[in-house]
Design a binder for these strands. Sequence first.
DNA 1: ATCGTTCGTCTAGTCGATGAACAAAGTTTG
DNA 2: CAAACTTTGTTCATCGACTAGACGAACGAT
Lengths: 401, 401
Amino acid sequence: MKTNKTWNQHVVKRENKFLVLETIIHNSPISRADIATSTGLNKGTVSSLVNELLDEKLINESGPGKSSGGRRPVMLLFNQVAGYSIGVDLGVNYILGVLTDLKGNICAEQQVNFSNLTYEEILENVYTIIDSLIAAAPSTPFGIIGIGVGVPGVVNKDKRILLAPNLNWRNIDLKSTLEQRYRVPVTIENEANAGAYGEKNFGIGKEFNNIIYVSVGIGIGVGLILNGQLYRGNNGFSGEFGHMTIEVDGSKCSCGSEGCWELYASEKSLLLNAERLGLKHEDRNNLTLDTVIDLAHNGQIEAIQLFEVIGKYLGVGINNIINIFNPEQVIIGNRMAEAEKYLKKPMTDWIHNQSLWFSQKDLNINFSNLLKHSAALGVAAFSAEEFLYRTIYEDKVVSAL
Amino acid sequence: MKTNKTWNQHVVKRENKFLVLETIIHNSPISRADIATSTGLNKGTVSSLVNELLDEKLINESGPGKSSGGRRPVMLLFNQVAGYSIGVDLGVNYILGVLTDLKGNICAEQQVNFSNLTYEEILENVYTIIDSLIAAAPSTPFGIIGIGVGVPGVVNKDKRILLAPNLNWRNIDLKSTLEQRYRVPVTIENEANAGAYGEKNFGIGKEFNNIIYVSVGIGIGVGLILNGQLYRGNNGFSGEFGHMTIEVDGSKCSCGSEGCWELYASEKSLLLNAERLGLKHEDRNNLTLDTVIDLAHNGQIEAIQLFEVIGKYLGVGINNIINIFNPEQVIIGNRMAEAEKYLKKPMTDWIHNQSLWFSQKDLNINFSNLLKHSAALGVAAFSAEEFLYRTIYEDKVVSAL
DNA sequence: ATCGTTCGTCTAGTCGATGAACAAAGTTTG
DNA sequence: CAAACTTTGTTCATCGACTAGACGAACGAT
């Protein structure tokens, strides 16, 4: 990538320092000598950069490692507990908050479920969750290094929530609200983007660089990792795949268009179909995704067939995704991923039959393995990554992420 | 962008040298002093880099410029005639070759039309065209710096043509064939990718960084410029938008799937519909796109209505594109763009009615202004760009483009 | 003619990467 | 067990690219 920036030795140093840090993060424990060979940097250079990182408390020396026929190396570890990050997944009917160390390990977790709350009430719940996560954080050199929030809606480049239809939110500046209260950097991100980032960093997408993460919940959103980077579009609105037309002149969608994908393949559509069938759970009368899954588990054929329909339509949309992006990996995530057992076959059958043969080369189709944690971990990782940038670039350069 | 590479002073120098060259290319005539202020580099640094570029014949000094109250600056010009590039657009029923200078100005042009030729026959035509373009090139320091070919099919990362359905080609290594004959670097690229690159560099897309170029010919292909760079997908197969399903269980497509976009919005579909209607041109009996356009120009209502249908379906697909990519610009190119007059209104009407309001912010929908030249100019530009990289990076580093 | 301004070059200085030498701490071998 | 070899990590002199600032040249304005 051509960056239209001038290069000088200061940039070189920062870039190399970041490279050394990343090498330690992803390969710890690792010795100075190994860093030198794996990065191609000179031993002396690595030594001096490592010493700076030690001074900044970003890494630690652990005891000596195994000898390979000579002096034993001093192993270096990423100091993943130098600070803690908070990630909040703000769903349509739940809030999930996690406290993670800098490497994305979950140290504490809080969840509340609700329905039909006002913005103010939801905000109170968010405060409560964040407060208790902060209280749960050990005392560390850097403390809480940032808060990330994933929302089921459209977020613009200034991190303002333009529209969250299922929450009935419009034009909300949650970022400033939280920053004023907690005095730490806050980032707001679309839930699908966050989930994609979570899967890329901690989940099943670790090894891949062109990932399409399909978040199937009440609606459908898509997060795009292209060439290893999150693609957000011109204004931050990319991935509104839920409103991709798959049936011209199909049923009307609330978005104003017709035949949108999420009318056929989302949780909303599943529940609608279930209701139409008059499906009922033994001990409840209010249908939810979980109840339908229960029914399927109990072997009820209608419930299983409902999932098979959803699976086929997921296949239709994913087939489009494959033709468009030629991705390495497609990940199905969010709540619907829990029905993998019933969705997988009809979905992959459709894809194998319909997709162009060359597109199926090197293609992986997976269900999320982080399940409900994808988005929360993703936003927490955004904060952690930005914190490392800030620390290395010392002068308040905001990450160009 | 994080490149997992080490940085040292050599990289810094090359990068700055390339930056200076780009500044001259895009702002010539420009003085050394202006380059310094606009790049942020020191005057001395610029001076020494400029002198190297002069030695390498990549730039020229022209006479003194206007004084702004002091010594008159020496103006620098990009030596756009240091070498010439050849771009070939290999269509389904035509070959268009252009000879361009390094800035993309067309110096010579050759076209032949044909139908139903074998690979060998087409190859002969390509040779003839390239030979005559080479003969037309003035003698220059670097001569012909490369040949680019755009093809209507799927090209993998090794530049092998895996499949060109409308030419009935499979697994063809045109790159090696041409390189052996002409002994210059050859690049093969999908026609839509090439067109996108052409429009981004020379056409209506100059000012934009997130461009979706929709090439509407016999089939439909799409070239993606995301964050200023061509996105090719994991294996180079991205942009097979023609086979995006827009109608589940719609008509069968040759690709094996159903309801593909290009069944509704391409030249192929236009001609099919025209035939069904029994449309006939005065003096010909074989229908082509041009004849239908002629009929529309003559006010024949059925022909105009045919275009309106195509326009609507173009709108359907482009609406999907907008929801998916949140682009800055969508460009409709290739042969169908010539019918802009009849397509535009039904297309934009559909889009304005169906697209989410926030997606339409900062969105430009344009028809190509390079018309049939987009792809040929694009591939020529690939070669030119790679030549500059090679020259600056001297040791045979292949462009990471 | 003189003064102030701008352009481009030149020189000394700074900073970071590099390579080589070296000390420290191991292992292997006879 | 001692000698020889290996590997690790530090130190130091050197190199190369950028920078700041001085300087002369060229030009406009007074």
